[in-house]
Simulated assay, not measured.
Amino acid sequence: MIGTAVPRARARLSYWLVLALLAAVVGAAATAGIAAGSVALAAGDVWGIVLHRLAPALVEPTWPPVRETIVMDVRVPRVLLCGVVGAGLSVCGMALQALVRNPLADPMLLGVSSGATVGAVLVLVLNVSLLGAFSLPLAAFAGALGALTLVYFLARSGGRMTTVRLVLAGVATAEVLSAVASYLVITSGDPRKTESALRWMLGGFGGTTWDLVPIPAAAVLLGTVALLGVSRPLNLLLAGEEAAASMGLNVHRFRGWLFVLVALVVGAVVAVSGAIGFVGLMLPHVVRLLVGAEHQRALPAAALLGAAFMIAADLAARTLIAPQEIPIGILTALAGGPFFLWLMRRRAAR
């Protein structure tokens, strides 16, 4: 009894140490992301401004008001949105890899990103502004839901949804919708609209305001809590459909529900960030190396690592060729492409 309790206590301790380390990495990345820019700030000034805004009595302002405006109205919402998007893509990638039992799966596999891209490109090309600043994210979200619905019905046959049909339906839908988005961009006839659409298709967080943060933050938080609530069925799926069914899990119903949940979360984050690939592919593998494959332990770690990664990637996108900004989707593709090829060769060797 004692012999088994000690290793378990050590495992719990090491797990919490990993989470604490990841939280510290998120804090460091966020501080660097807020401090860097055309107006560079010291880390102490960053935290002083944030603490002063949260609790004015704690910190006496010693900085010009313009710096507080830069931090709280420009950089903090951008860093928060980066963290939310990174956490959402990472968590959804981990859930999706269990859902289809394929470590090469990525949230973009579902075609949700391509659907969101079509919605956003339509707004940019047709210059729709009925809902003001919300026109683009809402159109992107509507496109994501449309793609979700199409993939869902294409993958279901006879009341069931198999992994093969799900993957094929997602890939086919993504290719068709990507072609539609490209056609809309090419035929727009306006160079400015074309440039805006292309930059959105490559992903980025330029122009982020506080108004864009609450909806994706709520979607990621609720989605992560829901996935934690079904972590045991997710673990059963990793053992195989037959084993999961023998334990009383309705595999087809659970897969359909989880598919909808993941697609909705991905659609909510893609609607505000553009198409950003490979994040949900790479980070779940790193998390499994750190804390193991059990989802009740891996999902919180995936959220923290995804947030840190996306904040760091956005920082690199803003500073590598400043004052110009690299679309963040280019950087994640440069990192994720070689990782995908390495993972594919590793599976082939096995």
Rank of each mutant, 00 (worst) to 15 (best):
L281E: 02
L126H: 13
G306Q: 00
M282G: 13
A155M: 12
A169L: 06
A302C: 07
I70L: 07
L290A: 09
R156N: 05
T319C: 05
G170Q: 08
E325K: 09
L221K: 09
M161I: 01
L145D: 09
A322D: 12
V291A: 04
A333I: 08
A11V: 10
V26E: 06
S246H: 15
K193I: 12
D73S: 08
A35N: 13
L227G: 01
L80P: 06
P103I: 10
W47N: 05
A55E: 15
A42K: 14
W16F: 15
G203I: 08
R156L: 08
V18S: 09
V213Q: 08
G223H: 01
G189K: 08
V26D: 06
A155T: 02
L341N: 00
L148N: 06
F339R: 02
I34C: 09
L109N: 10
V91A: 07
P216G: 07
E325V: 15
R53I: 02
I276W: 01
A155D: 05
H295A: 14
A87P: 04
Q324K: 14
A95Y: 03
L104C: 01
A9G: 13
F278N: 03
S178I: 03
S38Q: 04
V6A: 13
G277A: 05
W257M: 01
L148T: 10
F134A: 14
G206N: 13
P56A: 15
L227I: 03
G204L: 04
A275L: 14
A219L: 09
L154R: 10
L249V: 14
A139N: 08
V185K: 01
A333F: 04
S188F: 05
A140I: 09
L21T: 09
L110H: 13
G280V: 01
W342Y: 07
F278R: 06
P107N: 04
A263H: 10
L177T: 01
P233F: 04
A32W: 09
A312E: 00
V128K: 04
V185Y: 00
F339D: 00
L89T: 11
L177Y: 00
L198V: 14
V272W: 03
T62N: 14
V230D: 06
S273H: 12
A144K: 07
P214R: 01
T4K: 10
R10N: 13
V100R: 08
G248P: 05
I276K: 03
V50A: 00
V91M: 06
V46A: 02
L122T: 12
A142Y: 12
T319E: 03
A239G: 11
V251K: 04
L80I: 11
V85L: 10
R192N: 13
A155Y: 02
A35F: 11
S38P: 11
A5D: 13
V262N: 02
P284K: 03
T117S: 14
A142I: 14
L21H: 09
L80S: 03
H295Y: 11
D106I: 12
A120K: 02
L305M: 10
P214L: 07
L122Y: 10
A35I: 06
A32G: 10
E175P: 13
A40C: 08
R156E: 10
G292P: 11
P103S: 10
W257P: 05
G33V: 03
V123C: 05
T149R: 14
V74D: 00
E60D: 15
T31V: 11
A42S: 15
A179S: 12
L124R: 04
G111I: 14
A303Q: 07
P77Q: 06
